[in-house]
């Protein structure tokens, strides 16, 4: 049987422990909340070459700044508390300020002691710091029929990551538009295009991949690719259904210009 003092000290111990655990639970929740919030990087902040996916990066980068130190172009910066989003101290760059020059020896990755910048990245062309997007066709000079072409010309992966796609200029009626067109599969996200865009505010921007790109569902199959892989149609004897094109119930291939169907559509539409 515990003496009264013992019982009392035990009670005090339990109360203290409970208070401490409660305080820690609150502190821990707050910390985890802020830590999760830290994932919300500003949209123009790009991670260095080879950076792990953002979720993994925040568990791997110890914020030592060695990558920043070894970047010969002073591209990389460490995020400031408060002003650069809450991932304080992590390295990033802003394409419009200083883009990545895509060093052959990738010194930033070589400097990283933790693997936050993946040492498996040995060819800078495989880096995916972001993806360029021509965000504003309405202001891009090439879409006005001019031959600015600057973003295209500066691209280190010219004609692979970015091409000029010619099309008829409807406005003038007898010119061409050479639309700068990004091919994400080759774009490293270095930011040279955004940096060089001649407009006061770039019409082409490099965004983190998560913002720049969509994602196809896993189960989607492209018929033409499957057909090529297979060497033949996957299903024999497919019925070629009429192609539906704009116009009231038209099959332009069968009768260019459209025609009135000879049958009644279900639902009473004529």
């Amino acid at each position: 049987m515990a003496t009264p003092q013992l019982a009392q000290s035990r009670r005090r111990f339990l109360a203290d422990t409970a208070r401490m655990a409660g305080g820690c639970a609150v502190a821990g929740l707050g910390l985890a909340y802020v830590a999760r919030d830290a994932r919300a990087l500003p949209a123009d902040a790009l991670r260095p070459p080879g950076a792990l996916a953002e979720d993994d990066f925040l568990g791997a980068c110890i914020r030592c700044g060695l990558c920043v130190r070894d970047c010969p172009f002073d591209t990389l910066k460490l995020a400031e508390l408060g002003t650069d989003g809450p991932a304080t101290g992590t390295p990033y760059f802003t394409a419009r300020t200083v883009p990545c020059e895509m060093c052959d020896d990738i010194p930033c990755v070589a400097a990283c002691p933790t693997g936050a910048l993946d040492p498996a990245l040995d060819d800078i062309d495989d880096a995916r710091m972001g993806t360029a997007v021509l965000v504003d066709q309405e202001n891009c000079l090439n879409f006005h029929g001019l031959r600015c072409d600057v973003c295209y010309r500066v691209c280190p992966a010219i004609d692979a990551a970015i091409t000029l796609e010619a099309s008829h200029d409807e406005r003038s009626g007898h010119h061409a538009i050479f639309a700068p067109t990004v091919h994400a599969g080759h774009c490293t996200g270095c930011g040279l295009c955004e940096k060089s865009c001649v407009l006061p505010e770039a019409a082409i921007k490099v965004l983190p991949v998560r913002l720049a790109r969509g994602e196809a569902a896993d189960h989607y199959r492209r018929g033409w690719e499957e057909k090529e892989k297979n060497g033949a149609p996957l299903v024999d004897g497919l019925i070629d259904l009429p192609d539906r094109l704009p116009g009231p119930g038209t099959d332009n291939l069968a009768a260019p210009g459209g025609f009135e169907p000879a049958y009644k559509l279900p639902g009473g539409r004529r």
């Binding site: 821990g28 910390l31 985890a32 802020v34 830590a35 999760r36 830290a38 994932r39 979720d55 993994d56 925040l58 568990g59 980068c61 110890i62 914020r63 809450p86 991932a87 304080t88 101290g89």
Partner: peptide
């Protein structure tokens, strides 16, 4: 350490 584990980040380095 628990917050780091739970959030998958180096939690304390934020503060």
């Amino acid at each position: 350490l628990t917050a780091s584990f739970a959030s998958g980040t180096i939690a304390w380095e934020i503060l």
